[in-house]
Design a protein around this nucleic acid. Structure first.
Length: 116
DNA sequence: TTAGTGACTGCAT
DNA sequence: CATGCAGCCACTA
Protein backbone atom coordinates (compact mmCIF):
# COMPACT_ATOMS: atom_id res chain seq x y z
CA UNK A 1 0.00 0.00 0.00
CA UNK A 2 1.23 3.45 -0.84
CA UNK A 3 0.69 4.68 2.68
CA UNK A 4 3.07 2.11 4.10
CA UNK A 5 5.77 3.20 1.71
CA UNK A 6 5.12 6.78 2.70
CA UNK A 7 5.52 5.92 6.35
CA UNK A 8 8.93 4.44 5.69
CA UNK A 9 10.24 7.12 3.36
CA UNK A 10 8.98 10.07 5.36
CA UNK A 11 9.87 10.20 9.02
CA UNK A 12 9.20 13.81 10.08
CA UNK A 13 5.80 14.88 11.31
CA UNK A 14 5.56 18.18 9.52
CA UNK A 15 5.79 16.51 6.15
CA UNK A 16 3.15 14.09 7.24
CA UNK A 17 0.77 16.96 7.98
CA UNK A 18 1.45 18.47 4.58
CA UNK A 19 0.46 15.22 2.94
CA UNK A 20 -2.73 15.00 4.95
CA UNK A 21 -3.80 18.37 3.59
CA UNK A 22 -2.74 17.69 0.01
CA UNK A 23 -4.66 14.43 0.02
CA UNK A 24 -7.84 16.44 0.60
CA UNK A 25 -7.49 18.36 -2.66
CA UNK A 26 -10.29 17.13 -4.95
CA UNK A 27 -9.53 15.78 -8.39
CA UNK A 28 -9.58 18.50 -11.00
CA UNK A 29 -8.67 21.23 -8.52
CA UNK A 30 -5.41 22.88 -7.50
CA UNK A 31 -4.10 24.90 -4.58
CA UNK A 32 -0.93 26.76 -3.73
CA UNK A 33 1.98 26.05 -1.41
CA UNK A 34 1.02 29.10 0.59
CA UNK A 35 -2.56 27.92 1.12
CA UNK A 36 -1.43 24.51 2.28
CA UNK A 37 0.94 26.25 4.69
CA UNK A 38 -1.90 28.42 5.95
CA UNK A 39 -4.06 25.37 6.55
CA UNK A 40 -1.25 23.98 8.65
CA UNK A 41 -1.35 27.11 10.75
CA UNK A 42 1.83 28.72 9.42
CA UNK A 43 1.36 30.98 6.39
CA UNK A 44 5.11 31.46 6.22
CA UNK A 45 6.18 27.91 5.64
CA UNK A 46 5.21 27.66 1.98
CA UNK A 47 8.75 26.63 1.16
CA UNK A 48 8.50 23.70 3.50
CA UNK A 49 5.38 22.53 1.71
CA UNK A 50 7.32 22.46 -1.53
CA UNK A 51 10.17 20.74 0.17
CA UNK A 52 7.85 18.16 1.66
CA UNK A 53 6.45 17.37 -1.77
CA UNK A 54 9.97 17.22 -3.20
CA UNK A 55 10.79 14.37 -0.87
CA UNK A 56 7.84 12.26 -1.99
CA UNK A 57 8.66 8.95 -3.68
CA UNK A 58 6.89 10.10 -6.86
CA UNK A 59 4.24 7.76 -8.16
CA UNK A 60 4.58 5.49 -5.16
CA UNK A 61 2.26 7.63 -3.06
CA UNK A 62 -1.42 8.44 -3.05
CA UNK A 63 -0.60 12.09 -2.40
CA UNK A 64 -1.81 14.24 -5.32
CA UNK A 65 1.30 16.39 -5.25
CA UNK A 66 0.64 17.59 -8.78
CA UNK A 67 -2.37 19.59 -7.55
CA UNK A 68 -0.08 22.00 -5.73
CA UNK A 69 1.25 24.92 -7.76
CA UNK A 70 2.66 28.32 -6.83
CA UNK A 71 0.84 31.59 -6.10
CA UNK A 72 1.66 32.84 -9.58
CA UNK A 73 -0.81 30.24 -10.85
CA UNK A 74 2.00 28.35 -12.53
CA UNK A 75 3.84 25.08 -12.02
CA UNK A 76 7.09 25.67 -10.21
CA UNK A 77 10.07 24.41 -12.14
CA UNK A 78 13.26 24.17 -10.21
CA UNK A 79 15.37 21.16 -10.74
CA UNK A 80 14.14 18.58 -13.20
CA UNK A 81 12.06 20.10 -16.05
CA UNK A 82 10.50 16.74 -16.85
CA UNK A 83 8.76 16.87 -13.50
CA UNK A 84 6.80 19.95 -14.56
CA UNK A 85 5.80 18.30 -17.82
CA UNK A 86 4.51 15.33 -15.92
CA UNK A 87 2.69 17.54 -13.46
CA UNK A 88 0.96 19.45 -16.22
CA UNK A 89 -0.07 16.24 -17.94
CA UNK A 90 -1.54 14.87 -14.74
CA UNK A 91 -3.55 18.04 -14.18
CA UNK A 92 -4.83 18.21 -17.75
CA UNK A 93 -5.88 14.59 -17.46
CA UNK A 94 -8.09 15.68 -14.55
CA UNK A 95 -9.61 18.51 -16.54
CA UNK A 96 -7.50 21.39 -15.27
CA UNK A 97 -6.85 23.82 -18.10
CA UNK A 98 -3.82 26.01 -18.74
CA UNK A 99 -4.02 29.26 -20.70
CA UNK A 100 -1.60 30.46 -23.34
CA UNK A 101 0.75 31.63 -20.61
CA UNK A 102 0.76 28.25 -18.88
CA UNK A 103 -1.35 29.60 -16.05
CA UNK A 104 -4.33 28.05 -14.30
CA UNK A 105 -7.54 30.03 -13.87
CA UNK A 106 -7.98 30.13 -10.09
CA UNK A 107 -11.58 31.29 -10.47
CA UNK A 108 -12.37 27.89 -11.95
CA UNK A 109 -9.84 25.45 -10.51
CA UNK A 110 -8.60 26.74 -7.17
CA UNK A 111 -9.54 24.53 -4.26
CA UNK A 112 -11.17 26.63 -1.55
CA UNK A 113 -11.44 24.54 1.62
CA UNK A 114 -14.02 25.57 4.20
CA UNK A 115 -11.37 25.86 6.88
CA UNK A 116 -9.61 28.69 5.11
C1' DT B 1 24.88 21.60 18.05
C1' DT B 2 25.38 24.67 14.19
C1' DA B 3 25.08 25.97 9.49
C1' DG B 4 23.08 25.41 5.01
C1' DT B 5 19.08 24.69 2.08
C1' DG B 6 14.73 25.44 -0.49
C1' DA B 7 8.46 22.20 -5.64
C1' DC B 8 7.62 29.79 -1.96
C1' DT B 9 5.68 34.51 -1.18
C1' DG B 10 4.98 39.41 -1.17
C1' DC B 11 6.75 43.83 -1.85
C1' DA B 12 9.92 46.84 -4.31
C1' DT B 13 12.12 48.30 -8.67
C1' DC C 1 4.45 42.28 -16.85
C1' DA C 2 9.21 40.62 -15.44
C1' DT C 3 13.08 40.54 -11.98
C1' DG C 4 15.26 40.95 -7.61
C1' DC C 5 15.57 40.42 -2.76
C1' DA C 6 14.69 39.43 2.04
C1' DG C 7 12.07 36.68 5.27
C1' DC C 8 10.66 32.30 6.74
C1' DC C 9 11.55 27.79 9.59
C1' DA C 10 11.57 22.38 9.52
C1' DC C 11 14.70 19.28 7.94
C1' DT C 12 19.44 17.34 6.65
C1' DA C 13 24.27 16.62 7.04
Amino acid sequence: MADNILERVVKPGFHRRVYDVVRRIPKGRVTTYGRVATLLGSPRVARHVGWALASLPGTLTDVPWHRVINAQRRISFKGDPTRTDNQRSLLEAEGVEFDANDRVDFKRFLWMPDEL
